[in-house]
């Protein structure tokens, strides 16, 4: 219950659009949960419903076992980054954090510590209106961390970050999760989550398409295929097929073998003295696994322009 975000059966309609259609998942403490899906899959709406900004037509969303709107100092429970651009342009970074701190009964000292942590200490007295998107993301992350909350929800935090920033935020997310926090990070680009998320919730058309650990997802997408590079294509094919494997020619000196583990392929070809230069288990990338899953769930495919 504690420090867990639970979403169950959320439905919400905006006019003719069914934005959420039975969205259900759980974000557990101690790991980064990636929340992925194409644009329009309902990721942001789900987060807004969890945070009490939008009301769901059906279903429930609980943070630490309670509805967000019943929390008294909510930033002490859940830190959120929804929209890094939501800033009063003439207010300084420090003052932005200061009013948030005041609203939670926190002291002004907390703001400086956080600006330091997100690397904005030097820009503390600059007006937020002049910030780059990357700086705004950092300021938004500082705001989310202000109350030192056990639960974090970050919507597209990688947007606008430079490579250094992306590396930084990945490390930050991993360390936050390692401290025992529940961290939900949404992204429409799976690659951003590759080395960060331990668990994935894949959304499409307002519902969950897959809810799985990253390792299981890749395993499933790889489908136990083995790639063989050999100059003796015909003998290799007959040997493998004779042993019961399904063999496909995928190149002039390349075969893809299904239904046989890589060690077995190596042993079989060695026994028959078939020469080969490489036998490798094929590993799908997270990207491929994700595309597999969401192929049917994409609402708006990028049209050629």
């Amino acid at each position: 219950m504690e420090a867990t975000i639970e979403v169950s059966g959320l439905r919400k309609r905006f006019g003719a659009t069914q934005a959420l259609d039975g969205m259900s998942f759980t974000v557990r403490p101690g790991q980064v949960t990636g929340f992925v899906g194409p644009n329009g899959a309902g990721k942001s709406t789900t987060m807004r419903v969890v945070l009490g900004l939008d009301a769901a037509d059906e279903g429930s969303a609980l943070v630490g076992g309670r509805p967000y709107r019943s929390l008294r100092t909510p930033l002490r429970h859940v830190g959120a980054l929804l929209d890094a651009g939501a800033l009063q342009p003439s207010r300084t970074a420090r003052d932005h954090l200061l009013w948030l701190a005041r609203s939670q009964g926190l002291g002004a000292g907390r703001t400086d510590a956080l600006l330091e942590r997100v690397g904005l200490a030097a820009a503390a007295k600059r007006r937020a209106g002049g910030f780059s998107l990357g700086m705004r993301q950092r300021l938004g992350i500082a705001a989310a961390l202000l109350g030192d909350p056990p639960m974090l929800m970050l919507d597209e935090p990688f947007n606008g970050l430079d490579p250094e920033g992306i590396v930084w935020i990945r490390g930050l997310l991993r360390s936050l999760a390692a401290e025992g926090r529940a961290v939900l990070v949404s992204s429409h680009l799976m690659s951003e989550l590759q080395d960060t998320a331990g668990h994935l919730v894949v959304a499409g058309r307002g519902r969950v398409v897959a809810d799985t650990s990253v390792a299981d997802l890749i395993e499933a997408a790889s489908g136990g295929q083995v790639t063989v590079r050999t100059t003796a294509r015909e003998p290799a094919m007959s040997a493998l097929a004779g042993a019961g494997a399904t063999v496909t020619v995928t190149g002039r000196d390349m075969l893809t073998v299904a239904g046989m583990a890589a060690e077995h392929v190596v042993r079989l070809l060695g026994d028959r003295s078939v020469p080969f230069s490489e036998v490798s288990a094929h590993r799908a990338t997270l990207e491929e696994a994700y595309l597999d899953l969401t192929r049917d769930a994409v609402d708006f495919r990028g049209a050629a322009r």
């Binding site: 100092t73 002490r76 939670q104 926190l106 907390r110 109350g147 909350p149 056990p150 401290e179 926090r181």
Partner: peptide, 9 residues
């Protein structure tokens, strides 16, 4: 689960 040692506001 994470416990904050920040003084309760």
């Amino acid at each position: 689960p994470y416990r904050s040692d920040l003084r309760a506001g």
